[in-house]
Design a protein around this nucleic acid. Structure first.
Lengths: 207, 207
DNA sequence: TGGAGCTTGTGAAATCATTCACAAACTTAT
DNA sequence: ATAAGTTTGTGAATGATTTCACAAGCTCCA
C-alpha cells in the first residue's frame, strides 16, 4: 500500500469521531459533503482520503455510517485495545494517567513509572506508580504497545532508547525539548511550548 | 509579508529551542547544516525558512547564535511576555496551570477558571480557581492574550465564543472533540486521542 | 594578496497535497 | 420504465512545500 500522509491520518481520526457521534444519533447514512462540513474540509478531500483504502460508498446515497465506522476502525487499527504505559508521574504524567478519554478510545493505561523514590508507590486512580528500574522486566511480561514519555528533557533520549530496546514500537512524546525517535519506532510529539509559540507568532504577525 | 506555512512556524520554534541550547553551551556560530541535523531536516530547508524573514547569515561562516536568537525571538513575538488564562481546572487544566515550562518560555498563567463550584477556590500553585462566571469581567481588566481551553466537549463551542467575544484572539484547545475557531481567533488544537490513534495507525500499517 | 574551502541565499525542479470537474452509478418519484 | 436528482470515485489541474544545485560572498592560511 502506498504511504499515507500524516495529514490524511489526522483527518481519518477526525472522521471517525464524527461517525461515532452520527451513529449515536441513529443516522444511518452520511455523505462526503456532510463529513467535510463537520471537519472544515471539502467533500473531494473526504472522498480522496477514503479512496486510498477502498471504495466504501454508494453513488447517489453516500456512506453507510456503520460500515464506514467499521472500515475506519479497521484501517486505524482500533478494533483491538492497546496497552499503554506512562513514563513520568509528574504533573503531566499523573494527569494523563487519570484521563478517561484514553480508555474510551481504546487505549488502556496499564502502568505508570517514575524514577523519583518519593513518587514510587503513590496511587493514581487504580494504578500505583512503579519504579522505572522495573520497566524492562515489566515490559517483557506486560506487553506494552505504546509508551507515553512525560519526563524532563534531560535523560529523555536515553529513556526513549530503553523503550525501543524493550520492544515498544510507539512513543507519545510530551518531553519539552528535542527527542529523536529511535529507529523503527513511531513517535508523535506533543509540545505545549511549541503550540503556544505558534499562537504568539499568529498574534504578532496577523494583519 | 507573504503567508507563512504552519509547518514553517513549527520549525522556527524548533530552531529557537536549539539556539537556546547552543547559546547556553557558549557556541557563538551555527550553520544551517547543524540546525538541520538537530531538527531532522535539510540545510536547504533551514535556509529557506529563515530567508522568508530576511538574510541573517554570513557566507562561509554561518549564523551568529545570539543574532539569530534575537531575530527569531522577534519574528515569533517572544520579546514580550504573554498573559494566559486557563479555562477548566480538571486533570489537564490543573496540570497545565502548574506546568513550569510555560513561564520559562514567556507565557504567564495568570488565572484559572472552572464552572464547578466544588473546584472554585481550590489552590493550584500560586493561583486559586475562579468561577468562570467572572471570566468576562476579569478579561476586561486583566487583558488575557491567550486562553487555554481544557474543558469537556459539551459546551466548549459556546465557551470558545465567549472567549472570542471577550476580545481574546488566541486559543490553545485541549477539548476532546470538535471545536471550530471563532472568526479572527487563532487556534491550535492538542488532541491526545488523535495522537494515540495516529500511533495505532502506524503500528497497524507498518510494513 | 591569492587560492582553497566553506556556507549562504535563492531561482528552478521535483515532489507532495488539495481541489476541480465530470462520467458512472445509484435513489426516488411518477 | 423513465427522468430528475444525488453522490461517489478518480484522472487532471492546480497549488504548496521541499529539495536541488550553484553563483556569490565570506574566512583562513600561506
Amino acid at each position: 500500500m502506498k504511504r499515507i500522509a500524516e495529514s490524511t491520518v489526522r483527518r481519518l481520526s477526525l472522521y471517525l469521531g464524527f461517525l461515532e457521534d452520527i451513529n449515536r444519533r441513529g443516522t444511518t447514512t452520511v455523505s462526503s459533503e456532510e463529513l467535510a462540513k463537520l471537519g472544515g474540509t471539502t467533500s473531494a478531500q473526504v472522498r480522496k482520503d477514503l479512496s486510498l483504502f477502498g471504495s466504501f460508498g454508494k453513488r447517489g446515497l453516500g456512506y453507510s455510517v456503520t460500515e464506514l465506522l467499521e472500515r475506519l476502525r479497521r484501517i486505524m487499527g482500533l478494533e483491538r485495545r492497546w496497552r499503554v504505559c506512562i513514563i513520568g508521574a509528574g504533573k503531566i504524567g499523573a494527569a494523563l494517567a487519570q484521563y478517561e478519554g484514553f480508555s474510551q478510545r481504546g487505549f488502556d493505561v496499564v502502568a505508570v513509572y517514575d524514577s523519583n523514590p518519593a513518587r514510587v508507590g503513590e496511587a493514581l486512580g487504580d494504578l500505583h506508580v512503579r519504579d522505572v528500574a522495573f520497566f524492562e522486566r515489566d515490559a517483557e511480561s506486560e506487553k506494552f504497545d505504546i509508551a507515553v514519555l512525560a519526563i524532563p528533557a534531560r535523560g529523555a533520549q536515553k529513556m526513549a532508547e530503553r523503550v525501543a530496546r524493550a520492544g515498544i514500537a510507539a512513543i507519545l512524546n510530551f518531553v519539552p525539548g528535542q527527542l529523536t525517535a529511535p529507529p523503527k519506532v513511531a513517535m508523535r510529539t506533543v509540545n505545549m511550548a511549541m503550540e503556544l509559540e505558534a499562537l504568539s507568532f499568529a498574534l504578532t504577525n496577523r494583519d
